[in-house]
Structure formats: structure tokens, C-alpha cells
């Protein structure tokens, strides 16, 4: 059984709101990581009633596995709505796995300015971390092992799917 995405989103929104209040952050810039992270970020931003436009990051130019797997054929432009200097960023992704995507995203964010803070929210936090990265908010926690992955299908409707895979060497997540 995989959890229903809208239920997870409601839960994420409630806990993100609490967290932002506790930290005294009123209007963060919500930034999603292509592709799944952007879908989740859009829903989260809507549920939180944040007016500021959504930011989108494509981390292809910042990946640490370029020297092994080469260029991703379809790189979408990163779009960040405004200068990030002094801003609070709510960084959103679909699945937190090895932590390498988040590292790349942080590097890219800092090339747009020096944010006051970055808070990480993910739909699913799973096992397999390779870097010291952890989410402040996670919709679900899963133990999958190396032979299984969890994928977000979308954009409409959003659903989670567990897939058995031979994980390619250096799989990102």
C-alpha cells in the first residue's frame, strides 16, 4: 500500500505552517526541484496560501554524477522569481533518498544569492542517505532497501508508486 498524495500534502501543509510560525517566517519563497518537487511545491504553496510566485530549480548543471553519466538531455531552465538575498526559502522535493539532489539544489540556490534560511520539505523521506541531509517536514517515512524505489507520478493526479529496480550506479534521489 502506498499512501494517498493529497492526504500527505494536507499533513505536510499543517506541519509546515506550524514550523514556519515557530520560526517566525511569514512569507517564504517556495522553490520546487524539477519535476516532482515542482508539482509538490505548487500544491503546498496553494495550501499555505503563499502569494509569491513559485521558484523552480533544475539541478542538472550542479549534479555530482555529470562526470560519470554526462549531460541530461532535457534540462529545463531554473526560474527563481526574485533575488534570494535575505529571503527565507522553503525548498521542496518529492523523495529524499541519497541527499545528493538536495546538495546540488543548495549549491544552485546560493548562486542566486544568500538566503536567510532554507527549510527542506519532502513528500517522502526514505532510507539510503549518503550525505548529512535531513528534511524539516516529511509527508511519509519509508524503509525500502536498495532494490526498490518510490516514484511520484503526475502532474494530475499525483500518485506514489513503488517500483522494483536494479539501481543504476550512483542513482540520485
Amino acid at each position: 500500500m502506498t499512501p494517498e498524495v493529497p492526504v500527505l500534502l494536507d499533513d505536510m501543509a499543517a506541519r509546515t505552517r506550524e514550523l514556519l510560525e515557530a520560526r517566525g517566517i511569514e512569507s517564504p519563497i517556495v522553490v520546487g526541484i524539477h519535476s516532482g518537487g515542482v508539482w509538490i511545491a505548487e500544491h503546498l504553496r496553494e495550501r499555505l496560501g503563499i502569494q509569491r510566485p513559485l521558484g523552480k530549480l533544475d539541478i542538472s548543471f550542479y549534479r555530482d554524477d555529470f562526470s560519470r553519466i554526462g549531460m541530461h538531455p532535457q534540462v529545463r531552465p531554473s526560474q527563481l522569481p526574485e533575488d534570494l538575498d535575505g529571503e527565507h526559502v522553503l525548498l521542496v522535493d518529492d523523495v529524499l533518498y541519497t541527499g545528493r539532489t538536495i546538495r546540488a539544489a543548495l549549491n544552485e540556490l546560493f548562486d542566486y544569492g544568500r538566503p536567510a534560511s532554507v527549510t527542506l520539505a519532502v513528500l517522502v523521506e526514505r532510507d539510503g542517505r549518503e550525505l548529512p541531509v535531513c528534511a524539516a517536514v516529511a509527508g511519509a517515512h519509508m524503509e525500502l532497501g536498495q532494490a526498490e524505489q518510490i516514484k511520484l507520478r503526475g502532474p494530475e493526479p499525483l500518485s506514489l508508486e513503488r517500483v522494483a529496480v536494479e539501481p543504476p550506479e550512483g542513482a540520485d534521489g
Partner: peptide, 19 residues
């Protein structure tokens, strides 16, 4: 298409990627 992604880099404060 790839050049298009790089063309957008001019909006960044740091006009550089670590590729």
C-alpha cells in the same frame, strides 16, 4: 535546447555552474 538552459543563467548572481 541545452543552450536555452544556459541562456537563462544570466539572471543568476553567480553566472557560473560547476559542470
Amino acid at each position: 535546447d541545452t543552450a536555452e538552459s544556459f541562456a537563462n543563467m544570466n539572471e543568476k548572481a553567480v553566472k557560473k555552474v560547476p559542470l
